[in-house]
């Protein structure tokens, strides 16, 4: 473009660095999400159940992901599941090598639609799809997905 010809030195173009102060929100868990998080706080893993089509699913929602009906019921499950897929983080977002690789997995539960993405604590060389795992809860729980500290293999 013609304007380019008038630039003799790129450092004549001004740039402004600013910060956006947007990192503060209240996220509402909703009535069924709140009950699910309260169960976690009590060291219990529950799933949502649709009264119309019977689908049991995770994470919970007020509406059934299969038939779109309103959902109000939660059911307890044992928490024992299996690894559907996983990844091992070797480098962080800044490109620095992790001192300890971190395993993140999608954990599914028999008969349950959906699942949970969470950390798994085991040797990265031993992890495999299909491995059976169970949750390990923190001692101090707050009503958050983070109340599960990690999943670990079932011996």
């Amino acid at each position: 473009m013609s304007y380019m010809r008038r630039i003799s030195s790129l450092d004549k173009i001004y740039h402004f660095k600013t910060e956006m102060e947007i990192n503060a929100y209240h996220y509402t868990a909703g009535p069924i999400g709140t009950r699910w998080l309260e169960a976690l706080k009590n060291g219990e893993l529950k799933v949502a159940k649709c009264n119309k089509c019977g689908t049991r699913f995770l994470p919970p929602k007020l509406y059934c992901p299969k038939c779109f009906s309103e959902v109000s019921e939660l059911e307890s499950i044992s928490g024992e599941g299996y690894i559907d897929t996983y990844s091992v983080i070797y480098y962080n977002d800044s490109g620095e090598r992790m001192s300890e690789p971190v395993i993140i997995a999608l954990i599914r539960f028999e008969g349950i639609y959906g699942g949970i993405i969470h950390r798994v604590k085991t040797d990265p060389k031993k992890i495999r799809i299909g491995m059976r795992v169970k949750p390990v809860f923190r001692r101090d729980k707050k009503g958050s997905i983070d109340d599960i500290e990690y999943f670990q293999p079932i011996e």
Binding site: G33, S87, I89, D93, I104, A105, I116, I145, D146
Partner: peptide
Amino acid sequence: DPIYIRPLNPENVFVFNALEAKA
């Protein structure tokens, strides 16, 4: 998701894409 996924705060945000790649 701010309630069910983001609190994991993974060290690399592309790990979610890697889950799909692995599967």
